[in-house]
Design a protein around this nucleic acid. Structure first.
Lengths: 339, 339
DNA sequence: GTATAATAGTTAAACGCTTAACTACTATTT
DNA sequence: AAATAGTAGTTAAGCGTTTAACTATTATAC
C-alpha cells in the first residue's frame, strides 16, 4: 500500500502538504491541490486508518453494544431494528460500526469488552442497556467516551421507549373491552428494566379499575420464547379456567399462548382475548392477527445514533422518551358473556 | 489512559520488557513478570489498539460485510443467522466485528467501503457475496486480505448453501405429491446468484417429470416481500385458475400467497398447496404451517468464520457447500382431484 | 579454562499519520 | 516606508506500540 510519503514524493511536495490537502485545509493553490490529487489517484493511495487513529485519536468507529444475555440475540427484533437505525445514521456520516456483544456476569461485562472500551478504539458508543445484572456503560463514564444508552441504564444520555405508556395503553384496551378475569404471561422482571416498567403500567391500570394486581393469575417463568408462551398459557388455564384475557409481555409468548389455547379447543378472540407487546413481523401474519404495542424500535436506533453524533459535535442533546402505538387487531375482543 | 512507558517506569524496567512480558515472550524471571503485572494492575493499563494495529499490522478486527441491496437488511433472516454464527466464532477468539453494509452500484461498492477494505484496518473479511451487480470481495484479492465469501461470488474461499439440492428437493416433494399444474412465484433472477440456482433445481425436476418449465405460469416481479407474494398469487390465479400448487422462492412471498388465496376463498392445502424456501420463524407459526426448505443459515456463519480463522492461521481450508433440509408441514398435500 | 549456548534484559528504529510551530513571500494598511 | 495581515508551504515532533539487533550475565559442554 502506498503511503503519504510516496504520494508526497510523486507530487513533489512535503508529506504535510499532502496530508493537509487531503483533509481540506485552506491555503493551497489550485495547482498544488491538482498535483497532489493526481499523485493520489495514480498511486491509488488510501489512508492507513490505524495510523490516522493513533495520530489523531479518532477512529471513525462507533461501538454498538448488545449484551449477550440470551441465545440468538440477533434474531431479537428489537436488536435488529436498533441496528438498522444506527447503521443508517452512521453510513450517512461515513462512520463504521463495531459490533460488540459482551457476556455479562454479576462482576460486569467480560474482559474483552472492558479492554475494547478503554482502548481508544471507539469514538463513541451506543449500547442497549436494560439489564440490571450489570451496566455496559459504567466504564465509559470513567473514560469520558461519548455514549448513549438505549433503555433504562443509569446514564446521562439515553433514548428509551415509553414502556409505561405502552403497557398502560395495552391494559386500558383490555380492560376497556370489559375483561376482568385477566391472566398475565411474563418473565422474571429482575432481568430487565423495561419489563419492570411494563409491569408497572399493567398494575396501575388494573388497580385503577379496582382489580388486585397481585392476585391476578400470573406466569412469570417465561423466557420470551414461543415455547414458554405455550407453557404459560397452559399453566394459567389449568389453574383458573374462566380467564377471558391473557396479557403477554412480548409477542412471541403471545403467539405461543394463542397456539396453546387453540390446541385446547378455544377460539381467539371469541373464547379468550390475547394481546402481546412489540409488534414483530409475525404478529401481523399470524391468524388471528395479534393486538399488540408497536414500540417503534427503528426510531430508537436512529435517535440514539443522532444523539451520539451530537455529543461528538460537543452539543448537548436532550434525552428522549419515544411514545408507543397501540395496534388493535383481531386477537382481542369483548369477553364472551355466555361462557 | 496509562501507556506502556508509565507502566515501565512504575515497574522499573524498560518499555520493551513490559511489552514482551505482556505478549508472553519467554526469557523473563518470575520476579520481573510479577513487577510488571503489578504495575499493570495498579495503573489499570490497557493497550492502545490503534498503536498496536499500526505497529503490528494486526487489528483483531473482522469485517462482516452485507451489501445493502434492499431496505431493512438486518431483518433478513439469512443475515441474522450468519451474523449469529460469525459472532459466536469471533467472540470465542477475542476478535471484534466491524459491520459493513456497502451500497452497491454497477461501478462496484461505495467509496467508503473501498477505503475501509484497503485501509489495513481489517485482519480478515467475511462477506455475503451473492449479487451479480458487483462483487464486494474483488478488491480484497488485490490486497491479499484474507477473505471468505458466503454465496456464489467468484472467490477461492467460499461457503454456500446448496440451493440446487434444496430447490430440487422442494420441487420433487411437490411433484411427488402428484401436482402438475404448478405456478412459480419468484424474483428477477439477475439480482441473485442463489436464486438462479434455485430456478435451475426447479427446472431440472420439472423437466425430469415431463413438464415444460418455461411454460409454467410464472410471476417473477416479486421483491421477496409478503406484499409481492400476494400480488403474485393473484396474478397467477387470474391467469390460470386450475393451479394446484404454488412454489415460492422464499417464505415471505409464500406467506403472502397463502393469505391471498385464503382471501379468495381457497383452502390451503385442500384446494391449493403452497411451499416456500428459508424456514423463517413465521413459517412454523403461520396457520397452516409452511412446507419449506431449511438452509441452516447459522451454520453458514459458523463455517465461514472458522474458515477465515484457518486462513489467518496460514492453513488451507477447503470451501464448503452445506446441504439443506426439506421441512414438510401442513401447507402441502396431494392435489384435490375433485376440482 | 575457554568456547558455546541459553537466559534476561535494553536500545532504538519503525509503523504512517496529524499538527503545532516555523519560514518565506505577497498584499494591504497606516 | 514600515508594520501588519494573509497566503503557501515545510520541518519536525509526537501518537503508543512492536520487534530486530544488541549487551550482559549465567550455565553447559568439551
Amino acid at each position: 500500500m502506498p503511503t503519504l510519503a510516496e504520494v508526497a514524493e510523486k507530487a513533489g511536495v512535503s508529506i504535510a502538504t499532502v496530508s493537509k490537502v487531503l483533509s481540506n485545509t485552506p491555503y493551497f493553490t489550485e495547482e498544488t491541490r491538482r498535483k497532489v490529487m493526481l499523485a493520489v489517484d495514480e498511486l491509488g493511495y488510501l489512508p492507513n486508518l490505524a495510523a490516522r487513529a493513533l495520530s489523531s485519536g479518532k477512529t471513525h468507529l462507533i461501538g454498538v453494544v448488545f449484551p449477550y444475555v440470551y441465545e440468538g440475540i440477533f434474531t431479537d427484533p428489537l436488536v435488529q431494528y436498533i441496528l438498522e437505525g444506527v447503521e443508517a445514521e452512521c453510513n450517512e456520516r461515513g462512520y463504521n460500526i463495531l459490533l460488540s456483544t459482551p457476556r455479562l456476569s454479576p462482576d460486569g461485562p467480560d474482559e474483552n469488552y472492558r479492554r475494547l472500551l478503554r482502548s481508544s478504539y471507539l469514538d463513541g458508543i451506543v449500547a442497549l442497556d436494560n439489564v440490571p445484572l450489570s451496566s455496559v456503560l459504567l466504564p465509559t463514564l470513567r473514560k469520558n467516551t461519548p455514549a448513549v444508552a438505549i433503555g433504562y441504564g443509569d446514564h446521562p444520555n439515553f433514548v428509551r421507549s415509553d414502556d409505561l405508556q405502552g403497557s398502560t395503553a395495552l391494559m386500558e384496551h383490555v380492560i376497556g373491552l370489559g375483561h376482568r378475569q385477566i391472566g398475565i404471561l411474563t418473565v422474571d422482571e429482575s432481568l430487565h428494566y423495561s419489563i419492570q416498567m411494563r409491569h408497572l403500567g399493567l398494575q396501575q391500570v388494573a388497580e385503577g379499575a379496582g382489580l388486585n394486581y397481585a392476585r391476578l393469575p400470573k406466569y412469570d417463568r417465561g423466557d420470551f420464547s414461543i415455547a414458554s408462551g405455550m407453557r404459560g398459557a397452559l399453566a394459567l388455564l389449568e389453574q383458573q379456567n374462566n380467564l377471558t384475557a391473557l396479557v403477554c409481555i412480548n409477542d412471541r409468548m403471545a403467539l405461543g399462548a394463542i397456539q396453546q389455547v387453540q390446541n385446547m379447543g378455544l377460539k381467539v378472540p371469541d373464547d379468550i382475548s390475547i394481546v402481546g407487546y412489540d409488534d414483530i413481523l409475525s404478529a401481523q401474519l399470524f391468524s388471528p392477527q395479534l393486538t399488540t404495542i408497536d414500540q417503534r424500535a427503528p426510531e430508537l436506533g436512529h435517535r440514539a445514533a443522532r444523539m451520539l453524533f451530537a455529543l461528538l459535535n460537543n452539543e448537548n442533546p436532550d434525552s428522549v422518551v419515544i411514545p408507543t402505538q397501540l395496534c388493535v387487531r383481531e386477537s382481542s375482543a369483548p369477553p364472551n358473556t355466555s361462557r
